[in-house]
């Protein structure tokens, strides 16, 4: 389950960021996960809970903003919404679509005290 490695990556970014900051605890972490990224939000939550145990972020809330999938349709000549990598263009039903958004995998910010 690669979400475990990604959750460790989140914690490492949080620990790097907090170094030298005057705070004692991380109370929330906000991620942006694209609908077309390699990550299943539920699996990420599960792994996150395992990874933060015993860390400065123990007990922190995980907030996940999902970015919608977007693609350029070569048939229609405009941008369309794309719910998954195997979906057709919602306007013309074709598969000549090129993903333009929804692959985000970012740590946005965190709440500390």
């Amino acid at each position: 389950m690669h979400e475990m490695a990604l959750a460790e990556g989140v914690l490492q970014i949080v620990e790097d960021t907090i170094r030298g900051q005057n705070c004692t605890r991380v109370t929330a972490i906000r991620l942006e996960i694209g609908a077309l990224s390699h990550v299943e939000p539920d699996a990420m939550r599960f792994c996150f809970d395992a990874v933060i145990r015993g860390s400065v972020a123990e007990g922190a809330r995980l907030e996940i903003d999902t970015a919608p999938g977007r693609a350029w349709c070569h048939n229609c000549g405009h941008e369309v919404a794309l719910p998954s990598l195997i979906a057709a263009c919602p306007d013309c039903g074709g598969f000549q679509v090129q993903v333009t958004g929804g692959q985000e995998l970012r740590v946005k910010d965190m709440e500390v005290n």
Binding site: V10, Q12, I13, E58
Partner: peptide, 27 residues
Amino acid sequence: HDHHHAHAPGISPTRIIEIERDILSKN
């Protein structure tokens, strides 16, 4: 993992720290 949270005196104010980094940036 840093464990300094256990020894902090008092309550410090809650604030938001911007990060904006890709999760896979290290890889």
